[in-house]
Nucleic acid binder design. Structure first.
Lengths: 196, 196, 196, 196
DNA sequence: CATGAATGAGTTTTCATTCAT
DNA sequence: CATGAATGAAAACTCATTCAT
């Protein structure tokens, strides 16, 4: 499905992922990435305009794959609650099983300029939209509250999950991330207040 | 209110806040900060061991003030729901009224090494604990669900609010942040599911 | 004669020799050396780990060449007195004909940390050993006194010649250095005491 | 005999001696010397024009004391051989018993600009002259060879002793320096050649 | 005389990026 | 397309020296 980009392109991105995850963006010299990718320093500039592009493309590429997974998993689920749970499950498990990627999305990606942050926001759009769509669908189906502020809630949902992942990562991954899905979903669906 | 640290110390920190907020940490040269603070470059190093210390101290100082405000506001509130709303309100309004600080906490502070991230985590501790205490208190008072996973929920709450602020900031502050308190609290208390 | 190290390597070393000789080690900025060598500042760091390395390598390289000359000249001389005279002659004439080098060995090289001094001592070893060997050989051949403290005498010989060179250099090279060979050898062989 | 310079003046010089000996000239910050001397940084500049002056004055002061000792010891000795031995003995024992001073004269003092080297040469003058006078006297008394090149020999003598001290210092002072007097004098008087 | 806080000039080193081969 | 040697701009930090108190 992904257009068959040059093999080197992929190798460089893989190298960047490894190096960024290990050393962080600012401590990752281009030459180190080149070595990890098995290409010459200059070669990188045949595929990427600048170092920052590596981060952006890496992010787009990987996020693209993730979103695809989200969409594939959710497509056939009519139950929006089930679908939202699936989204959360994928969010947690994918990052749990892909620590390097987690490092990059939770830590390195934030180490960037305002402009890049906007770039990132843009690339997140599809994921955010997917959540937004689920919310709309849920409202239609009268599964979710009719008066939800969708724009706000999608942020709350995403931010909540995002923090759980970051915290898990910084803590040294001492517990299971995917085991938090149930608690997270209960919070999302019912909040913390004791039912009357 | 703040203990009378050296006047220059405060001036430097103010300068750092301004410059960091405008240009971001990595693009803020020490000399620029010195100029903004009205001192010589070298003077900064009489008060701070290294550039990174500026970020850390700035953060500790400001977060300390915030936590103090949180604690003062919450102390006399017996109603935990009211208290949590107050926390959220302060969280939103303080950052809304203090864009420079918001920039630093939401953007610049994340631009740092793993070590610094841990530092930051540590400094956030009091705030996180405050939320945790509210949760415990609410459970005791049977206002919140008895089976809450407090450790998880405090992350979800904080992450949700954090993302709302970041998003508001990146979007260019085109809407009122403090106006999101109601929506946020409704989400926290009752979740998104339509009551049966 | 010298193994064909990179051309730039040699150019940089030549530049360093010139600049060190003229301004002294501590007043020689790397950028000045780069200009003298006709390369960019950064290029120096492709060949040398740090500025101090320039001094060390310069020293090793040049001293190596000198020692080679010493050994070649002495190899075929059976007469140890003749050999020692040759050593002194080379010591004086080489530095006399190579004022820049003299500056570096007599002045700049001493401007260094204790650690570097040890480095230097190590690099001098072959020369010192050469003198020591001559002394041993002379004792065997019953040309030199049988009870010489070889370890001490080699220092006395070297120190004496070294001071003559330094003094000549500091005085502004107002007299012929190589003309001091005879006087030096007479001192070495017979001392200052009037024969009984 | 020495004019009673200010007490602070002496304290600063003592501090400088200690700090220079321990850390070397270039690594000795003025503030460190001030602390060692028990005065404020600025105070040093009431007594010395610049940092380098500390080295020069230290040197002049200490060398002055040494030369005084040399002269006192030699004054009443009619036997020039005995006198020269005494000079060597003092040279070795004084530095052996005064490692800090030895460090400064043998190592730190050389770490200086060409101009300072000339300064130093000047301050050495009295010592060199003392040796020169002994040589002249010895020639007159027909104890030393009549055809000595006095200007050259004084350098050879000084250089030889100087190197012995430096080598002893760099080696880590693993042997007795004063025990080298006999060997040194035998070398000076009779050289290394086996008497016919 | 003495202080020590403040100054700011000065330098090594790194590393993203280029371009001749 | 690929290389990697060369580039040179950029910036944190130090520390001798000053001067208001």
């Amino acid at each position: 499905m992904t257009s068959k980009k040059s093999e080197k392109y992929e190798m460089i991105l893989e190298g960047a992922l490894k190096v960024f995850a290990e050393h962080g963006y600012h401590r990752s010299q281009v030459s180190k990435i080149a070595k990890a990718a098995g290409v010459a320093d200059g070669t990188i500039y045949l595929y990427f305009k600048r170092k920052e592009d590596l981060l952006i493309c890496l992010f787009r590429e990987k996020l693209g794959e993730l979103v695809e997974k989200f969409e594939n998993s959710v497509r056939d689920l009519d139950d929006v609650k089930e679908a939202l749970r699936k989204v959360c499950e994928i969010h947690y498990t994918e990052l749990e099983n892909n620590v390097d990627l987690a490092h990059v999305t939770q830590i390195e990606l934030r180490q960037s300029s305002m402009e890049l942050r906007k770039e990132i926001g843009l690339a997140f759009k599809p994921y955010i939209l997917l959540i937004e769509n689920l919310l709309h669908k849920g409202i239609e189906q009268q599964v979710f509250k009719p008066d939800l502020d969708v724009k706000l809630v999608r942020l709350l949902l995403f931010g909540a999950m995002d923090e759980v992942v970051t915290s898990w990562l910084i803590s040294g991954r001492k517990y299971s991330l995917s085991a938090q899905v149930d608690g997270t979903m209960d919070f999302f669906f019912n909040g913390i207040a004791r039912p009357a």
